[in-house]
Simulated scan of single mutants.
Amino acid sequence: MRLTVPTLLTLLRILLIPVLVLVFYLPFEWTNWAAAAVFALASITDWLDGWIARRYDQHSPFGAFLDPVADKLMVATALVLIVQAHHTVWMALWAGVIIGREIAVSALREWMAELGQRARVAVATVGKIKTMVQMVALLCLLYSVNPYGEAHEVWMGRPIFVIGDWLLAAAALLTLWSGFEYLRVAWPVLREEGRSQLK
Rank of each mutant, 00 (worst) to 15 (best):
V123Q: 15
T45A: 07
S106D: 13
A40Q: 00
F161T: 01
V126T: 14
A76M: 09
C140Q: 06
A64G: 13
V97P: 09
I103T: 09
V121I: 14
A104K: 09
R54H: 04
I99E: 03
R54G: 03
D67G: 07
S60F: 10
E114M: 06
A37P: 10
Y143P: 05
F24W: 00
A53C: 10
A170T: 11
H152C: 00
G50V: 06
H86F: 11
L73T: 04
G63Y: 08
L115V: 02
G149L: 10
G96Y: 04
W94L: 03
L26N: 02
G164Y: 01
W90Y: 13
V75M: 11
G63Q: 10
A107D: 07
G63E: 06
K72D: 08
L138H: 04
D57E: 14
V89K: 09
V133M: 08
L115Q: 08
T88N: 04
L22F: 15
V162L: 13
I129H: 03
I129Y: 04
I98Y: 04
G157D: 10
L79V: 11
D49R: 07
A169M: 11
S106K: 09
A92R: 06
I82S: 04
A113Q: 08
A70F: 13
E153A: 13
R101H: 12
I82G: 00
G127D: 14
V80Q: 05
A34Y: 02
L139T: 15
N146Q: 13
L141A: 13
I163E: 06
H87M: 12
A95T: 12
L108A: 09
V126D: 12
D49Q: 05
V23G: 01
N32F: 00
T125V: 12
Y143W: 14
R118Y: 08
L108R: 13
V23W: 01
D71M: 12
I44W: 11
E153M: 05
I160L: 11
A151R: 03
A170H: 04
T31D: 00
M156W: 13
S144G: 08
W47E: 02
W30A: 07
V123G: 15
G164K: 02
Q117P: 01
A53S: 15
H87P: 07
S106R: 11
L26Y: 07
V38Q: 00
A78E: 01
I98D: 03
C140M: 09
S144K: 03
S144T: 08
G149K: 12
T31Q: 05
A85D: 05
A70S: 12
D67K: 07
F65K: 15
N146M: 12
A42K: 04
T131G: 04
N32V: 02
Q58K: 08
F39K: 00
G157E: 10
H86C: 06
A78I: 07
A35C: 09
A137V: 01
D46A: 13
D57T: 11
R101I: 12
E102N: 15
L115P: 03
